[in-house]
Design a binder for these strands. Structure first.
Length: 714
DNA sequence: CGGAACCGGGTTTTT
DNA sequence: CCCGGTTCCG
């Protein structure tokens, strides 16, 4: 092997071995920060470079689009455009692509829609109702959970026993699941689980197609193997059967998705599944300092179900890991914001190199407030997904109905948005009619309108609605799709609704719809668009601008930051009480792995903290230090006790001001958000400006009005 | 049918 | 505390 090649240079011994072991099954146990993406991409390049296969014969699977596009980019740097033909993507997007080609064989049309959780719930609620169950006895969310779990394990309705879930839903689980699948098929729709499930069915029932793909994918690479579920496992097994060239990369210590069906056993028994599998461990860490790795290893050592491995590094520089306690959750957030402010001012690190990682979404609020207060720009990753906003979902529903009139879920969502006088009773009539005649809601509405029994307002607006959708659909043949949608949103008065409303967020919503419409021009067709958006989330745009990153620990997987804050390490919050209640030992170990993931995101600075009191559900509760902190040896970190440091405690009523973008503009002249100092009052922050008078919030004494002359910028 | 006023229940993590 | 769902009234 010629290791003068650029893509091989700089690899350590095990990395090089992993890259150049071309034939046969290979498992790479890659600890956090050990350069696995580098190995994966070099491996692909090596295969192509040595003519083992054409790019189109390589399949590389990841879990997130972000990971996929990063891998694609890195490979393209070496191999250039040829990579267009390579199959790099998420399990779901690759499975979806395959199904577009063969949907007919399974009784779907190739333009099937992919539905999200929202639609799943909507559909399940209907079914539960139609079965005559009370929503309280058979909660839609729980039923959804069970159905998803079946799909994760590649279990079809016919293979479910009626008492598989104990006595849930009067032993009707099988029928409920069956009905759910039937209705989806009627809508020509699939949920996430179906994408994999239908692939497996396709391969099992059509040998020719199975062979086609087995031959096509000569080399397979799988990232984050510890997160695969049984369906994904089977899919990989089937595809790799012929060539046996499958390379899986993973880290059992980073398995944090058991709750959505991931089977850690997949990675633990890889060498039994694949005969003569080679196993290579990557243990040299290039990311973090020894202090940080030490904390991570000590913590994860408390888990019993794991392959032992020990990460090491040559980076012996850096500060100790800090463990800090605070009076309450607000103070914790304020102090961290202060610290971030200081780091930036001292030019110790730029904002985009800083991350605050929390256990659950609700915890981000305090940090938004405190960062706003100091005028520090931040971004929250994962929370407000563009496609999760009500108005965007409405817009998408219009598009769905526009190209597929049978999409009952979309129909139900928007039939009365904006309000057009179609209430529950009218909707009930439509549903009734649709059932009687075995037709879609849309067709039933058409029928209802044509019967014209009553000349009510509802009938008129329904007629208009039907008309608009149908004419728009015809227009698609000769008019640009973006134009058609734009017009439809006008005709149906959807845009008008937000134009009229004079709430603050109506403007945002209006803008979002406009942006949605605009983005359509980036797609060949509306079908392309729909296919894309369901499979993509916004973690892709971990943008480059200079902001603090706030996100959940789950969302942080695969990322790294110079400085990381891990707040809220309290019993019940982290480890989360839910996860322990659910599944005592397994739950706790998964929480510990999550902690391991979170810790190993940090390159240089790591601060873990907890609050002695926390607002929960609106009241104030004492909290207990997380067991995870207690599991760390005392000499492995520096303890900072801030509980009795009263600066924040006394001034619990900070006014909250929104000045997120103001910082750079007003910075120079004691602008809002500026940190200032006064000879007697000490440090403070400018709240508002009026002429040469500033209203300043001082940490020690609260709000005061001061002339600019007496202030100095800190 | 739509809006306002009220009540009760829930906060884990997501392709 | 925030939301979604329900109820009651015009």
């Amino acid at each position: 092997m010629d290791d003068t090649k650029e893509y091989l240079s700089g690899l350590n011994e095990s990395q090089l071995e992993a890259v150049t072991h071309v034939e046969g099954p290979l498992l790479i146990l890659a600890g956090a920060g050990t350069g696995k993406t580098r190995v994966l991409t070099s491996r692909i390049i090596n295969i192509v470079d040595n003519a083992h296969a054409f790019p189109s014969q390589i399949l590389a699977v990841t879990f997130t689009n972000k990971a996929a596009s990063e891998m694609r980019q890195r490979v393209e740097k070496y191999l250039g455009d040829v990579m267009g033909s390579m199959n790099i993507g998420t399990f779901h997007s690759i499975a979806a692509k395959i199904l577009r080609k063969h949907a007919e064989l399974l009784g779907y049309k190739s333009d099937y829609t992919i539905i999200n959780q929202d639609d799943q719930i909507r559909l399940i609620k209907q079914i539960v109702k139609d079965f005559g169950f009370d929503e309280k006895d058979v909660p839609a969310k729980l039923l959804l959970y069970y159905i998803n779990r079946f799909k994760d394990r590649a279990i079809l309705p016919e293979n479910v026993a009626s008492n598989d879930i104990g006595h849930f839903a009067n032993n009707k689980i099988k029928q409920l699941y069956h009905e759910y699948q039937d209705r989806l098929k009627n809508f020509n729709a699939m949920d996430f689980g179906d994408l994999l499930l239908n692939n497996i069915t396709l391969f099992n029932t059509h040998l020719d197609i199975c062979l086609l793909y087995q031959n096509k994918f000569k080399y397979m690479l799988v990232d984050e193997y510890q997160d695969t579920n049984i369906a994904q496992y089977m899919w990989l097994r089937i595809l790799s059967q012929n060539n046996n060239n499958i390379c899986c990369v993973g880290d059992d210590d980073q398995s944090i998705y058991a709750w959505r069906g991931a089977e850690i056993s997949n990675i633990l028994r890889f060498d039994k599944d694949y005969k003569d599998a080679k196993v290579i461990r990557l243990e040299r860490n290039y990311r973090s300092t020894q202090h940080i790795l030490n904390i991570a290893s000590k913590l994860i050592a408390n888990n019993t179900m794991r392959h032992f491995k020990e990460l090491w590094t040559e980076r012996t520089d850096g500060d100790m890991v800090k463990v800090v306690n605070y009076y309450d959750d607000k103070e914790e957030a304020r102090a961290i914001a202060d610290e971030i402010d200081m780091l930036e001012r001292m030019k110790k690190c730029s904002l985009s190199d800083i991350a605050v990682l929390v256990r659950a979404g609700y915890q981000t609020r305090n940090f938004e407030e405190s960062l706003n207060f100091l005028g520090i720009p931040y971004r929250i990753i994962g929370s407000t997904k563009f496609y999760d906003r009500t108005e965007v979902k409405d817009g998408v529903a219009y598009i769905r109905l526009l190209i597929n009139h049978d999409d009952n879920l979309a129909f139900e969502r928007i039939i009365n948005v904006p309000k057009r006088g179609v209430g529950p009773s009218t909707l009930q009539n439509i549903i009734q009619l649709s059932k009687e005649n075995g037709i879609s809601y849309f067709a039933a509405t058409k029928m209802l309108v044509q019967q014209k029994k009553s000349k009510s307002k509802a009938m008129d607006s329904l007629a208009d609605f039907i008309n608009h959708i149908e004419t728009s659909n015809h227009q698609l043949k000769h008019t640009e799709h973006r134009k058609v949608v734009e017009e439809l949103m006008e005709k149906t008065s959807y845009l008008e609704m937000y134009r009229k409303e004079d709430k603050e967020d109506a403007k945002d919503r209006f803008g979002n719809i406009k942006e949605l419409v605009r983005s359509l021009e980036e797609y060949e067709s509306l079908n392309d668009f729909l296919q894309y958006i369901t499979l993509v989330n916004d973690a892709d745009n971990v943008a480059e601008d200079n902001r603090v990153n706030i996100m959940t620990m789950h969302a942080a997987k695969g990322l790294e930051f110079d400085t990381v804050f891990l707040p809220g390490w309290e019993e019940g919050v982290f480890p989360s009480s839910k996860s322990i209640e659910e599944d005592r030992e397994n739950g706790l170990e998964e929480e510990r792995r999550l902690a391991y993931v979170a810790i190993t995101r940090a390159k240089r600075n790591l601060t873990i903290s907890y609050a002695c009191y926390r607002r929960v559900y609106g009241d104030f509760q004492a909290s207990e230090i997380s067991r995870f902190i207690n599991e760390l040896p005392k000499n492995a970190y520096q303890l900072i006790n801030n509980y009795f440091n009263n600066t924040y405690k006394q001034n619990n009523n900070h006014p909250v001001i929104k000045i997120n973008k103001a910082r750079s503009i007003e910075h120079a002249k004691f602008g809002v958000g500026e940190k200032v100092e006064h000879v007697t009052f000490g440090k403070g922050v400018v709240l508002s400006a009026d002429g040469n008078v500033r209203q300043v919030f001082f940490e020690k004494t609260g709000v005061k009005k001061i002339m600019v002359e007496f202030l100095k910028i800190v």
